[in-house]
Design a protein around this nucleic acid. Structure first.
Lengths: 227, 227
DNA sequence: CGATAGACATTTGTATACAATACCGTCAAG
DNA sequence: CTTGACGGTATTGTATACAAATGTCTATCG
């Protein structure tokens, strides 16, 4: 089990800075100084630097030509590609998971799937609960995939702002479809069918992309209409 | 006094430690202490820690249950998967590159390809030169792919020991085939055919995998025969 | 004899001070 | 005006000292 409240100052810094960036309190492109981040997270610059390294690796923070820190700013192309890569890698993870997953893990996925259904079925749908369980679901698959490399690479493709923006825009029918896909994944795992699992997962991510990009477009149009 | 130029100490540490690990002076699974690494790289522990973070991210170094450092030890499955992921990601990079690559970059690839041919054709083939130019070739494609994410992820899949072990085992015919594939990639880029580029690249990596795994097997048999 | 608590040694984590470097406004020369 | 050199200021980089934690060994008790 993971320890959420880690005593390491560098982990505290990581969480706080990540939160700071993802919550939107920091503008994309804005400069960040180590000292400012140290103040925000309540520790000294040393652990902040370690945290920044990690965030930099996830491309949430970028370093300028020389060493100054800025909040990352993603282009439309960046986001498109994130989904493409996620499709490939999560598809691969699902494929591996289908070969390695334990009965216990499949049961766990079933329980989570029940919670997902519950979150969708109440009215209004509990999107935040849906997101939390969705994340757990994907984490278990990643774990079952038994690949340190995937575990290292996927976090940089599953940035919260995109995830959140996607799911908060789901209509109920879309959430239901998503829940159905989770069920189908479980079926593929139960059958130990790696091709099936890969295909379902790829399509799952791909659909999320289209939901995302259509709502992003709608948003943009609304912004332009307000000017 | 150590260095005429003044690159960052953390970069020096990164290079030295990486070298130390990859050169085989460090046994897989061996423990590394920060102080030892500081001695090796001639800087203090602070930059060493930053270097270690990077190497840890590339999975060249791993952290134990609690925070002690060890030289990574790859299983056969790890290596298999590295090649699978490389195939996917480099294939994707080639696909993107086919859409974005500039004329200048294609010319550059042509020049490198000439050097590759030259390295293969002399006798005995200059494997080390081949490797260097091969790396440049792939770097240019990665650059042309214009994807910070790919640029961040691929380094953790292209670990020198595997690359070196693969290429040093190439027979001349295999090197020639590799050079031919590079030419075909250039053709695909010139035609701006992203599907072609992806297919050639995927097959290129896949073939490297089989060369690698067959020679690894041969090595293992020889070792067993010696016992 | 085995288990275990506790002291000691080793290693990692953090804060701070100071050094090196990059940025930016100012001013002088062309 | 533009340009380029200069210097002050802000920011990052490094070393060191010390704190916290982890591992290990031994002595003692059951």
């Amino acid at each position: 089990m993971e320890n959420a409240t880690s005593p390491r100052a560098s982990d505290i810094a990581y969480d706080k800075i990540r939160q700071f960036v993802l919550s939107g309190r920091a503008e994309p492109g804005q400069q960040l100084t180590e000292e400012q981040l140290a103040r925000i997270s309540g520790v000294s610059r040393t652990p902040v630097r370690e945290a920044v390294r990690r965030l930099e690796n996830e491309l949430l923070i970028v370093r300028s030509d020389s060493k100054r820190l800025f909040v990352a700013d993603w282009s439309a192309d960046d986001i498109d590609e994130m989904f493409v890569l996620r499709g490939m890698l999560e598809g691969h993870a699902a494929s591996r998971a289908a070969r390695n997953i334990s009965g216990r893990q499949i049961e766990e996925l079933g329980r989570i799937s029940d919670l997902l259904d519950a979150a969708v079925r109440c009215s209004p749908p509990d999107v935040s609960e849906f997101l939390a369980q969705n994340r757990r679901f994907h984490e278990i698959i990643l774990e079952a995939a038994c690949s340190p490399r995937l575990s290292a690479m996927l976090p940089m493709l599953v940035e919260q702002p995109v995830v959140r923006r996607t799911a908060t825009q789901y209509k109920t029918e879309e959430l239901l479809q998503s829940a159905r896909e989770h069920r189908e994944l479980i079926a593929a795992f139960t059958a130990r069918d790696s091709h099936w699992a890969r295909a379902v997962m790829t399509s799952h991510i791909r659909r999320a992309f289209h939901v995302f990009s259509s709502t992003a477009k709608r948003h943009k149009e609304q912004r332009q209409a307000n000017d």
